[in-house]
Design a protein around this nucleic acid. Structure first.
Ligand SMILES: [Zn+2]
Ligand SMILES: [Zn+2]
Ligand SMILES: [Zn+2]
Ligand SMILES: [Zn+2]
Lengths: 156, 156
DNA sequence: TGTGATATGTAATATTATAACAATAACATT
DNA sequence: AATGTTATTGTTATAATATTACATATCACA
């Protein structure tokens, strides 16, 4: 794992933060959307849509569109990111101050760290400008092994 | 389009290059693999697996595994890249000298430019090192509008 | 030519995601 | 409160993407 911690706090914080954001933006943070966001965070690593669907269980009459629509809403509002190289979804770690963020994805423990890096962002901006390209969405996904998993290597 | 040109040359060159590479590495560049590589290039933009499957037509007894296996081979040997944000495949534009490459994906014309940028690569290396992360695969996909398509805007 | 490894054929199925339309709930206006 | 309007959710079906498992064919090479 990237870091051990009391994960319940992450979930709570994420939900509170989402509440605030939706309130400010006059969006409906419905029970379903809240529940899906909680589940995304509960998974800790990246969560697959159909796992979320299972986890919703009988609480909601959940069919695929149910969960995909909630994920769409959460993505549109920057509360969740899709990790394209995994077809999976992670909670955004700082939805309020979001910009220039990249993902470090551990193939061993499946955790995803979201990190900001101005240098990377500015070199990408230069690259894009050099090609006279107008960027709309930038995906930077780095798969590999996190520090913890490197240390555990061979110990188990 | 990123650039107009006689596309037949791209295909020929890519195939010749692939032949050389497979020869050097003692790999079997079978008819099927060659054909799939040609088709990937023929599409010019990123090609979807099931489109390739259709395009293979009756030449080969093509079922999904046929095309996915060929694509796996081509990817493993750096002849083709998968664009995760599109679930599609593009021919590698410089399979021999491959490193630090990123993709500019035009949402209008669907073309994909592969470009190298040492600055981006080195800032990503720093980011990764700062997190004590051991990268195995890095994906940089920038979706937006290419220069040509910006100029055509509103003209049609 | 025989033998093992690699590649391809084939059928079935798994996984991921969307379309289309109906029903309901929330909101706004009278 | 009754009404019209929009946003959300339910439901069924299906599309799009990808893999498993096993059979057969081809190749490399002894
Ligand atoms: Zn984020
Ligand atoms: Zn890890
Ligand atoms: Zn390449
Ligand atoms: Zn374009």
């Amino acid at each position: 794992m990237f870091a051990k911690h009391e994960h319940a706090h992450c979930i709570e914080d994420a939900v509170k933060s989402a509440e605030r954001i939706c309130e400010e933006r006059n969006l409906r943070f419905t029970d379903l959307r809240r529940r899906v966001l909680e589940l995304v965070w509960q998974n800790h690593g990246a969560a697959k849509a159909y796992d979320l669907l299972d986890q919703l269980g009988d609480e909601y009459s959940a069919k695929p569109p149910t969960v995909y629509r909630a994920l769409d809403f959460l993505q549109e509002n920057g509360l969740v990111h899709k990790i394209n190289s995994l077809n999976a979804y992670v909670g955004c770690q700082h939805p309020l101050e979001h910009r220039d963020c990249f993902f470090l994805i551990c193939s061993d423990c499946q955790e995803v760290a979201e990190c900001c890096a101005g240098d990377v962002a500015s070199s990408i901006r230069e690259l894009v400008a050099a090609h006279h390209f107008a960027p709309r969405r930038t995906t930077v996904e780095i798969e590999g092994q996190c520090q913890q998993c490197q240390q555990c290597q061979g110990l188990d």
